[in-house]
Amino acid sequence: MLFISFNFYSQNTYVFVGSYNWNKSKKGIYVFRLDTITGTLKKITTVKNILNPSYLTVSPNGNYIYACTDTKTPNAGNVSSFEFKPQHKTLTFINSQKSGGENPVYLSVHKNGKWLVNANYTEGSVSVYPIASDGKISPITQKISYSEGSINKERQDRSHVHSSVFTPDHDYVFLPDLGADKIRCYQFDSLQKEPLQEASYSFTPAVLGSGPRHFTFHPNGKFAYCIEELTGTVSAYKYVNGKLDNIQRIAAHSDEFTDGFNSGDIHISPDGRFLYASNRGEENNIAIFSIENNGTLKTVGYQPILGRTPRIFAIDSHGKFVIVANQSTGNLVVFKRDSVTGLLNKSGKEMKVKNASCVQIKEYP
Rank of each mutant, 00 (worst) to 15 (best):
Y239E: 02
R249S: 15
A224V: 01
E194T: 13
Y225D: 00
S210R: 11
F217W: 10
P195D: 00
Y201S: 14
F257D: 00
R213E: 03
K238N: 09
A252Y: 01
A251T: 02
V207T: 15
I250M: 14
L230S: 07
E228D: 03
L230W: 03
Y239Q: 06
F203H: 12
Y201E: 11
E256T: 02
K238W: 03
S210P: 13
S235N: 13
R213G: 06
F217L: 07
L208Y: 12
Y239G: 03
K222G: 06
P195Q: 03
P212F: 09
I247N: 12
P212A: 12
L230R: 09
D255A: 11
A236S: 15
N246A: 11
Y201Q: 08
S254Q: 04
H214S: 09
D255Y: 04
S200N: 09
H253G: 05
S235C: 08
R213K: 07
Y237V: 01
I250Q: 14
S254G: 12
F203N: 06
K193V: 11
V240E: 12
D245P: 00
E256W: 01
P205Q: 11
L244R: 13
A199K: 02
Q248E: 11
D255Q: 12
S202G: 01
E194N: 08
S202T: 05
Q197E: 10
H214F: 13
E194Y: 09
L208C: 05
G232T: 05
K193P: 09
R213I: 01
T231G: 01
F215W: 11
P212K: 15
D245K: 11
P212W: 05
D255E: 13
G221E: 10
G242Q: 07
L196N: 12
N241D: 14
H214I: 08
F217M: 07
